[in-house]
Simulated assay, not measured.
Amino acid sequence: MLCIIHHETDPYFNLAAEEYVLKNFERDSFMLWRNEPAIIVGKHQNTLAEINQDYVKENMIKVVRRLSGGGAVFHDLGNLNFTFIASGENHQLVDFRKFTQPILEVLQKLKIEARFEGRNDLTIDGRKFSGNAEHVHKNRVLHHGTLLFSSQMADLSSALKVDPDKFQDKAVKSVRSRVTNISEHLKTPLSVLEFRDLVLKHVMESTPGAELYSFTQDDIAAISRLRDEKYITWEWNFGYSPKYNFRKTVKTNGGKLEVTLEVVNGTIEKARFFGDYFNKLDPVDIEQALTGTLHNETAIRERLKDFEIPDYFLKINSEELITSLF
């Protein structure tokens, strides 16, 4: 097994690195990595329905879709991520207990009573510190998990706090759990990097043939290309979302404004405005302009830049209108 530690904290690069190793390496691999603040959404989720858009924008939190299913998770530098990539027979590939067992063994050495619970979680005293997901590609499986070590819980809660009434879709929904940091349960203080080194040491000592591996310049170049061509793009992170209906009501100086959108593959197929506002011109012009536009703030601003919004919604400005669309 190749044991890879890379010090890159760019979430776009790190998610691309997983796919690169999965599809280009023949040997089993293990990776430990951290991300700067980011929300990582499951492959089958509606991204906008999983994030607090205003909080994410204000705090410049990156949003990235991963290859595996499951729910959205918040990463920061107090969160350690682990990845196992292994080959095998198809019916033996998906095994959450197998790939989380080394983590439980490390915690047992630290005198922490942790356990595997439910479908894919690790807990301490009933509170979750690790969520896990898997993705199968041909005869290879990618298993990855979070390890909340010293994460900022307030940021985690705020970044993932979404109004459940905004979206109606068939996408996979995240299930929020009571969470805890590993550091809160340590008998002797450790830093997240010291904890990382303990995990690496245990995996190397318990896995026959394990050896350290560093990405070559060719590896880094290929991962960077995948990052730029896929993982950083709006099309992958937002446009890949399943079909959904969006609905939001805002109170403005011009009255109540309610917006409904039908969105397919990230593109608005139908927009409607309702409310007790007044108008000089018919808002149907705005509805028609939004049809065919990406449900993306930059694209919508560009499409509406030539409209005098207060003519269509008296005492409502363009910023209030755009806010109503997310």
Score class of each variant (00 low, 15 high):
residue 295 H to P: 11
residue 60 M to Q: 15
residue 266 G to T: 07
residue 216 T to G: 15
residue 198 L to C: 01
residue 196 R to E: 12
residue 182 I to K: 07
residue 103 I to W: 01
residue 296 N to D: 15
residue 278 F to K: 06
residue 283 P to C: 07
residue 62 K to C: 09
residue 269 E to V: 06
residue 43 K to M: 10
residue 263 V to K: 04
residue 162 V to G: 03
residue 107 L to N: 08
residue 49 A to T: 11
residue 133 A to C: 02
residue 283 P to N: 08
residue 66 R to P: 07
residue 277 Y to N: 12
residue 69 G to M: 06
residue 134 E to M: 06
residue 239 G to Y: 08
residue 11 P to E: 04
residue 19 E to R: 15
residue 318 S to Q: 14
residue 304 L to K: 08
residue 243 K to C: 07
residue 325 L to H: 13
residue 171 A to V: 02
residue 234 W to G: 03
residue 202 H to P: 04
residue 133 A to Y: 00
residue 32 L to A: 12
residue 141 V to N: 04
residue 116 F to I: 04
residue 307 F to D: 06
residue 67 L to G: 05
residue 130 S to V: 00
residue 230 K to P: 02
residue 222 A to G: 06
residue 66 R to L: 05
residue 320 E to H: 08
residue 142 L to S: 01
residue 50 E to D: 14
residue 269 E to M: 06
residue 44 H to A: 12
residue 237 N to W: 08
residue 224 S to V: 00
residue 32 L to E: 11
residue 27 R to E: 15
residue 288 Q to K: 15
residue 46 N to T: 14
residue 100 T to A: 09
residue 129 F to D: 01
residue 93 L to E: 09
residue 96 F to G: 09
residue 193 L to V: 03
residue 207 T to P: 09
residue 10 D to Q: 07
residue 278 F to W: 11
residue 198 L to S: 06
residue 250 V to Q: 08
residue 266 G to C: 05
residue 258 E to W: 02
residue 126 G to E: 10
residue 37 P to K: 05
residue 128 K to F: 05
residue 309 I to P: 00
residue 101 Q to C: 02
residue 313 F to Q: 02
residue 206 S to Q: 14
residue 301 R to V: 03
residue 120 N to C: 13
residue 126 G to S: 04
residue 168 Q to T: 14
residue 13 F to G: 05
residue 68 S to T: 15
residue 280 K to G: 13
residue 283 P to H: 04
residue 143 H to N: 02
residue 209 G to Y: 06
residue 20 Y to S: 14
residue 191 S to A: 00
residue 254 G to N: 02
residue 88 G to N: 12
residue 126 G to C: 02
residue 192 V to T: 08
residue 118 G to E: 11
residue 290 L to S: 15
residue 102 P to V: 01
residue 325 L to C: 13
residue 75 H to S: 15
residue 257 L to T: 01
residue 188 T to C: 03
residue 304 L to E: 10
residue 242 P to G: 10
residue 47 T to G: 04
residue 225 R to N: 10
residue 16 A to T: 12
residue 222 A to P: 00
residue 62 K to F: 07
residue 274 F to E: 10
residue 306 D to V: 07
residue 241 S to E: 09
residue 46 N to S: 10
residue 29 S to K: 01
residue 321 L to G: 07
residue 305 K to C: 14
